[in-house]
Simulated scan of single mutants.
Amino acid sequence: MRRHNLNDGSWQWIEMDFGDRTAMEKQLVDYSVDKVWLEQANQMDVNNLQMDTTYKGKEVLWGSLIYDHNLSDSDSEKIFHFCLTRNFLLTDYLKFEVFHSINTSNTMTKMNHTHTPIEGFMVIINIILNNYLQKIDVFEKRINDLLWRLEKKNNEAVLEQIMNCRHQLIVLKGLILPLKEIELGVPEAFGEETKNGTIFYKMQQRIDRAYTLVSEYSIEIGNMAELESVKADVRGNEIMKTLTIVTVLFTPLMAWSALWGMNFTHMPELDYKYGYLFAGLLITVNTIAIYLFLLNKGWMGDLLNSAKKSKKKKSNSTY
């Protein structure tokens, strides 16, 4: 167990093993904390927040919070457990060294400048938010690169990257929502006065910024997925249209070939001197006739352009 006496001893931050239920109950003997949570706190692997406000001055907020997560690994979450009162902050041992890109060496200095455990808890939340904001910053370049790759060429690899990006944003949003819950839960447990001060304001603004960025990037990724789907549908329609036209144009050849490929004994065409030439001309004429029919209907080119032209012809004919 580590005790940090902060702000000239005005409050304590206690780090301890949450698997030691006896020690935890000793620290929380004057507070109404859920017994089930005390038994299972060290086994919690999901975000959780509870509170008790029965007795004034003895309000308590407790729970578990994921403070770091590799977005590509479902089993990489790092979680800490906490119990917050007006007199002390109780947590398990935090490992801020996992934040390689964030300077956490001055964490104790920041904590020592706070006046209450509530403010100290907000300092920890702000550090977690900085970690998540740095993860979010990576998405700006990823989304921009994906957008231009989608413009040049859409294929299964691009779609897979879009889906991967979308999945990671959903995971990030799920990590930020519990912080939003804490933002709402702290004033609910300890009163509106906890909203006063720069530390709560910074936490609130960072939560809003992180949530807004994730939401907007999610919308942008959703639009890209929709765009990719539209392009795939158009391409598929073009392929089907081409295959249909080829099939229709070769229908005379297949039909007449099937007819004259029969092995009946009495087939008058077999004795024609110019039967081969006649058959070739007949197939050619039929094919050209079908081609002209399709061309006249506007089914040989771009369907969208053909539709516009037909509309234009109709509008001109009305004047």
Rank of each mutant, 00 (worst) to 15 (best):
L61P: 00
V285P: 06
M16N: 04
E192S: 10
M122V: 05
K153R: 12
T109S: 08
T53S: 10
R86L: 12
I245Q: 00
L133S: 08
I219T: 11
L90R: 01
N144T: 08
V171T: 08
L71H: 09
T194L: 00
D137H: 13
A225V: 12
L303W: 08
L281K: 01
E220D: 07
K273G: 04
D17A: 11
Q43C: 04
N144P: 02
I199W: 02
E228V: 15
L172Y: 07
L61W: 02
K173S: 09
Y319S: 04
S257H: 08
V60N: 05
N87P: 00
C83G: 02
V285S: 11
K311S: 10
M254L: 11
E220A: 09
G222A: 09
S74Q: 11
D34A: 10
D30E: 12
G19L: 09
F121L: 15
E140V: 06
M24Y: 00
I143S: 07
Q12V: 08
S257N: 09
Q204N: 08
A23S: 12
E216V: 12
L159M: 13
A232Q: 10
L38K: 03
I124Q: 06
L159Q: 13
L295A: 11
L169R: 01
N70Y: 10
E228A: 13
T242V: 06
T318D: 04
F278W: 14
E183M: 05
G236W: 15
S315V: 14
L89Q: 10
K231D: 02
S72L: 12
H167V: 05
Q161S: 13
L270R: 07
N87K: 13
I290P: 06
L179G: 07
T287Q: 02
Q204F: 14
K180V: 01
A289G: 03
V29H: 11
V246Q: 00
N305D: 13
T116P: 06
S218D: 09
L49W: 01
S215P: 03
T53W: 08
